[in-house]
Amino acid sequence: MSTSKSNPNPLDVLDSKINPDNVKDYQTRLESYHSSLDSYWKFEIVPGIFKQSDPSTDERKFDYLKEHFGIIGSWDDIIENLNHLNNSTGPNEQYKIMFLARHGQGFHNLAHTKYGDNAWNEYWSKLNGDGEIIWGPDANLTELGISQAKDNNYIWKQEQINNKNNDASLIIPTKFLVSPLSRSIDTMYYTWNDIVDLKNVQPLIQENWRETMGVHTCDKRSSRTIIDYKYTGKGFVIEPGFAEEDIYYQDDYRETVGEQALRINKGLQQLFNESPNDKIVAITSHSGSIRAQLLAVGHRSFAVGTGGMIPVFVKAIKVTK
C-alpha cells in the first residue's frame, strides 16, 4: 500500500458540514416530494455497527484504512446481523450496508488547496484552469488520486483475508453505483477492477450520484459519447435516459444542499425499490454527494478525504399512504 493520505484536510471538514438551514430546506423539499408519491422509503442508521456513526469519533483523526473501515466487532458478526435482520422482516423493511466512496484527488482538489476556499469559490472554480492546472470541465484524477483508489483496492483485499471464516465474498458489494464524472468512474475502476469482474457486476453510471451541480466547471460532466467510449468497454453501464450533453449544469446557479440531498434521496428510493436483494452496495461519488447521502440516510455529518470511504448500515422502512 502506498503512503498517500486519505484523512480529511481542513477544506474537506469545512465542505462536509451541514447547518440547520440545510436540514430544514431538505425536510421541506422531502415532504413535498413525499406528498406526490403513493409510497416511499424512510431511512435511518442502525447504531453500534461502525465507529463513524458514533458522535465521539473524531473525523479529523479517524483513519478508516487502519481501522478496518471502522467496524465495531467483526465482519462475521456484522454480516450475520445484516442477514438476520433482512431474513426476519417483511417486504416493507430492508437493511443494507452501503460503502460511500469519495473519488481520489482530482486536479480541482489540487487547485482548491492551492488558492484557498474563498478564492476558489469566488473566482477560480468558474474557470477551466490557471495555465498550470486544468480542472474543467470534468476534472480528472491526479497521480495521487489514482494511488488513493489503489489503496482502497489493497485494503479491500486485506479485509477479505482477515475474515475469520476466510470467505472472500463475505463483504464484497453486489451492487455498484457511480457518478458520471470521470474522477469517480476512474476511482471505482482502480478500486475494484481486480477484485470483482466489472463486466459481470456492471457498475451503473447514474446522474443522481454526481457532485453539487452548477458554477464550478469541474462538476460539468463529459458527453455521453465520451463516457460511453471511455468506460462501457470496461464493464460500466450508463443508465437509461442519459442525455448526450450535460443538461443539469448551469454556469450561473449552484445547487443547494437541500436540492442535492433530495436528488440523492431519489437515487436511494430507486436503489431500494429495484434492488431489494443487494444487501451490500458500493457508491462512488464526491464530497458534496456524500454529505447529501449522509443527510438523506440520517447519519451524522462526517468528513471524508479524497479517496476516502465511509460505510453506513441503513435501515429502510416503506411508508405507504
Score class of each variant (00 low, 15 high):
23 V>S: 03
275 S>I: 10
101 A>N: 11
88 S>F: 03
135 W>D: 06
267 G>W: 00
249 Y>S: 06
35 S>A: 13
271 L>T: 12
14 L>T: 10
235 G>E: 03
211 E>A: 04
91 P>S: 06
311 P>C: 09
198 L>S: 04
134 I>G: 05
167 D>Y: 11
191 T>W: 05
121 N>L: 05
128 N>L: 15
101 A>I: 11
224 R>Y: 13
313 F>N: 00
202 Q>G: 04
125 S>I: 01
295 L>C: 05
203 P>K: 01
2 S>Y: 09
243 A>C: 10
180 P>C: 09
53 S>Q: 05
205 I>N: 00
108 H>L: 07
318 K>T: 03
240 P>E: 12
309 M>R: 06
318 K>G: 02
287 S>M: 06
28 T>F: 07
1 M>S: 08
204 L>C: 06
264 I>K: 01
271 L>E: 05
87 N>Q: 08
108 H>N: 14
278 D>M: 05
183 R>E: 09
156 W>F: 15
264 I>Q: 03
63 D>M: 12
240 P>Y: 11
146 I>A: 06
52 Q>I: 03
298 G>I: 04
56 S>H: 07
296 A>K: 02
116 G>E: 10
267 G>D: 05
262 L>V: 08
107 F>H: 08
179 S>L: 14
229 Y>G: 09
41 W>H: 07
29 R>D: 02
298 G>D: 12
256 T>P: 02
27 Q>H: 11
154 Y>L: 12
171 I>K: 05
92 N>Q: 15
242 F>Y: 15
